[in-house]
Deep mutational scan, measured.
Amino acid sequence: EEDDHMEFCRVCKDGGELLCCDACPSSYHLHCLNPPLPEIPNGEWLCPRCTCP
């Protein structure tokens, strides 16, 4: 299965362990989110761009 998510964080543009949005190709480091997440959430996760009205 091919993964179309970005291979770098949308905020800092660095690679590493990234959290991928379930609705778009964006990826983020947990510490780059505002507010930062302490751990990878269970289940579906939507990035700030997808949850913003």
Rank of each mutant, 00 (worst) to 15 (best):
P41L: 11
C50V: 02
C52I: 05
D3V: 14
C24L: 00
C20N: 13
F8G: 12
L37G: 06
C20G: 14
L46K: 13
Y28Q: 03
A23Q: 15
L30V: 12
D22G: 13
L30Q: 12
G15C: 03
E17H: 07
A23M: 04
P38M: 02
C20Q: 12
G15N: 04
G43D: 06
C20Y: 14
K13D: 11
C20L: 11
E2A: 06
L46E: 10
L30C: 10
P41H: 11
L46G: 03
H29Y: 02
C21V: 00
P41W: 04
C47L: 01
P36T: 14
C12E: 03
E39H: 14
D14G: 13
P36C: 09
E39Y: 04
D22Y: 09
R49W: 09
E39D: 06
C47I: 11
L46H: 07
W45D: 01
C50T: 01
L37M: 05
E17F: 05
P41N: 15
E1R: 03
P48T: 11
H31Y: 03
C20T: 14
L30A: 13
D22P: 11
C9H: 00
P25R: 14
S27Y: 10
L46I: 14
P41F: 09
L46M: 06
H5L: 06
D3N: 15
Y28A: 03
N34E: 10
R10I: 09
G16W: 00
G15K: 15
C20F: 10
D4N: 15
P25Y: 12
C47F: 04
G15A: 13
F8H: 07
W45T: 01
D4P: 12
E7H: 05
C9S: 01
C52V: 13
H31D: 13
P48W: 04
V11S: 08
R49V: 12
C50P: 03
W45Y: 05
P48Q: 09
E39G: 08
P25M: 08
R10A: 06
P36L: 06
C50K: 02
E7C: 14
E7K: 04
M6T: 14
P25H: 12
E7N: 09
L46P: 03
D4G: 04
P41M: 05
C9Y: 00
L19D: 04
P48A: 05
P35K: 06
L33Q: 03
H5I: 11
H5Y: 09
Y28R: 03
T51Q: 14
E7I: 08
S27P: 03
I40P: 13
L18V: 13
D4T: 15
C21I: 00
S26I: 09
K13R: 09
L37A: 12
C47M: 00
G16R: 03
T51Y: 07
L33I: 15
N42T: 12
L33D: 04
W45I: 02
V11A: 05
S26Y: 11
S26A: 13
D4C: 15
L37H: 15
C24E: 02
T51P: 09
L19V: 10
C52L: 12
S26N: 15
H5T: 09
G43Q: 12
C52S: 14
R49D: 14
E7F: 06
D22H: 11
E44I: 07
C32W: 00
R49N: 12
D22W: 09
T51V: 09
V11P: 01
H29L: 03
T51F: 07
G43H: 07
E2Y: 04
C20H: 09
C21K: 02
P25T: 13
L18M: 11
C47E: 01
N42D: 10
E1G: 05
C21A: 01
C50L: 02
E17T: 12
D14E: 13
N42L: 09
P53A: 09
I40Y: 09
C9L: 01
P53K: 04
F8V: 07
S27E: 06
D22A: 13
V11N: 08
N42A: 12
C12G: 02
L18E: 01
H31G: 14
C20S: 11
H29R: 01
E44Y: 06
C32L: 01
M6Q: 06
D14H: 10
L46Q: 09
C52R: 10
D3M: 15
H5Q: 10
C21Y: 00
G16D: 11
L30M: 14
E1C: 00
E7Y: 03
C20A: 13
C12P: 01
P35Q: 08
P53T: 09
W45Q: 03
P35F: 05
L33M: 06
N34P: 03
P38A: 15
G43P: 10
L37V: 08
C12W: 03
R10V: 05
C52H: 15
L19T: 07
L37E: 10
W45L: 03
P48R: 07
C21P: 03
S27V: 14
I40A: 06
H5C: 04
C24R: 04
S26F: 10
D4A: 07
T51I: 14
R49S: 12
P38I: 02
N42Y: 13
G43I: 04
R10N: 12
L46T: 08
N34M: 06
L33C: 08
F8A: 11
L46N: 15
L19M: 13
L18N: 00
C12T: 02
S26L: 11
A23S: 15
P25G: 13
P53R: 02
C12L: 00
V11M: 11
E39A: 11
E39T: 06
C47Q: 06
K13F: 03
D14A: 14
S26P: 04
Y28K: 03
L18K: 00
C50N: 02
V11G: 13
G15H: 07
E1L: 01
E44D: 13
D22S: 12
L46C: 14
C50F: 01
R49T: 14
G43R: 09
A23C: 11
W45F: 02
C21F: 01
P41S: 13
A23Y: 15
C47R: 01
L18I: 12
C32H: 04
E39P: 14
G43F: 15
V11F: 08
C47K: 01
A23V: 08
E17L: 05
E39L: 04
L33F: 06
L46A: 10
G15F: 13
P36I: 14
N34H: 05
S26W: 04
F8Y: 12
N34K: 13
P25C: 14
P25N: 11
V11E: 15
C24Y: 02
C47H: 06
C12Y: 00
L33S: 03
I40M: 08
H31L: 05
L37T: 11
D14I: 03
T51L: 10
T51N: 12
S26V: 12
L30N: 10
D3F: 15
E44M: 05
D4K: 15
P35A: 05
E17K: 11
S27H: 12
C24G: 01
L37S: 12
P38W: 11
P53G: 08
C9P: 00
G43L: 07
P41V: 13
E17V: 06
E2T: 12
K13V: 05
R10K: 06
S26K: 09
C47W: 00
I40Q: 14
D4V: 07
R10S: 09
I40S: 10
S27D: 05
M6G: 09
G15W: 09
E2R: 10
P36Y: 01
M6P: 10
G15D: 14
E17S: 06
P35Y: 03
C32F: 01
H31I: 10
C9W: 00
C47V: 01
S26Q: 04
Y28W: 06
A23R: 11
